Structure formats: C-alpha cells, structure tokens
Amino acid sequence: MINHISLAVNNPSHVAEVVAELWQGQAVPFPNHPGYYITFAMDSFGSLIEFLPKKTVLQPNSVGKGVQFADLSSEVPVHTATHANLMVPISEAQIYAIAEREGWRAVRCKRSDDFELIEFWLENEVLLELLPPTMSEQYLTATRPENLQAILAAK
C-alpha cells in the first residue's frame, strides 16, 4: 500500500485545496515548511498527498539526518512522469465541474479493456488518475492478484 506521495506543483496551497475537494478531505500547511501543504483523505488508511513548490527537490542528507529539501536554481520542466491514481468519493460530473472551474484538463480514458479512469491534470501539468465510485470496482477487479497474474502470464 502506498501511504502518501509528494507532488511538485506551482501553487501548493490551491492545489491542496482542490484535491481536498476531490477527496472530500482536508488540506493544511505542512509543519515547519512554509509554502508546502498536505491534503488528507481522512480515510482509515491515513492517505495523504504532500504538495511542494515545483522548484523543490528532495535529496539525501548526512547519514542519519534524513532527507534534505532543496530549491532548484535551474529551469524546472513543465510536466513530470510522477503521477498518482486515486479513488475519490465524488461523481464524474463533480470532477468535471471542478476541472472546468479551475480551467484544468479532465478527460475520461480507457486504460485497457478492463477499466476506465479520469485523467485530471493539476494546473494542466501534473496528472492524477481519478476513479469515482462508478469506476472504482473496474479498477479493483483488474488489479486483483489473480487477474494481474493472468495478464502477466499472457505477455
């Protein structure tokens, strides 16, 4: 299980609030890191996403000292391969309404013959794959171990 993920965005506070709306969760400032925010799903798993300023990188610190947050001084790419797939408790229509309000791209996509999802582009740059309740069961069925084993065996 993935407990949390960090995403680099242009406006961490705003993106955290929008994702809190999608998740029906709560967004709060990240303690001891001004300008960083966390969105909590408020689920029984403690799921959360950290939103960091786009120019932030994480790098190793001295042994035993943990991670070090650093700012990039060079140009930051617009898009990234980093993304997350999230189940959300709101409807497909609500997702599109939020995307339209924000001016962000949202489109229903078929990833395979087994499931569909909604690509929701934070700031039109960072991808969240959203699974509203009507799409969640398809994804869960497709990713059950026995189904994945059959797919992998066919390759």
Results as ranks from 00 to 15, higher is better:
38 I>Q: 08
39 T>K: 03
41 A>L: 15
45 F>D: 12
47 S>W: 10
48 L>I: 02
50 E>I: 15
50 E>W: 11
51 F>W: 11
53 P>R: 09
55 K>W: 11
56 T>E: 08
56 T>H: 10
57 V>E: 11
58 L>H: 08
60 P>D: 13
62 S>D: 13
63 V>L: 13
65 K>L: 14
65 K>N: 15
66 G>R: 08
67 V>Q: 06
69 F>R: 07
70 A>G: 06
70 A>W: 07
71 D>C: 09
72 L>Y: 07
73 S>M: 08
73 S>T: 10
76 V>A: 05
77 P>A: 01
77 P>T: 03
77 P>N: 08
78 V>F: 01
79 H>K: 14
80 T>M: 10
80 T>C: 05
81 A>M: 13
81 A>P: 15
82 T>H: 08
82 T>D: 10
90 I>Q: 10
90 I>K: 03
90 I>D: 01
91 S>M: 04
94 Q>G: 03
95 I>A: 02
96 Y>D: 00
96 Y>N: 01
98 I>A: 02
99 A>H: 00
100 E>Y: 07
100 E>V: 00
101 R>W: 08
101 R>T: 08
102 E>L: 01
104 W>I: 00
104 W>H: 04
105 R>P: 01
108 R>V: 04
110 K>R: 13
110 K>V: 00
111 R>L: 12
112 S>L: 04
113 D>N: 05
115 F>R: 03
115 F>M: 01
117 L>Y: 02
118 I>L: 05
118 I>P: 12
120 F>D: 00
120 F>P: 01
121 W>H: 13
122 L>M: 13
123 E>D: 13
124 N>Q: 05
128 L>Q: 03
128 L>P: 04
128 L>W: 10
129 E>P: 06
129 E>K: 10
131 L>D: 00
135 M>C: 11
135 M>P: 11
136 S>L: 14
136 S>M: 06
139 Y>G: 05
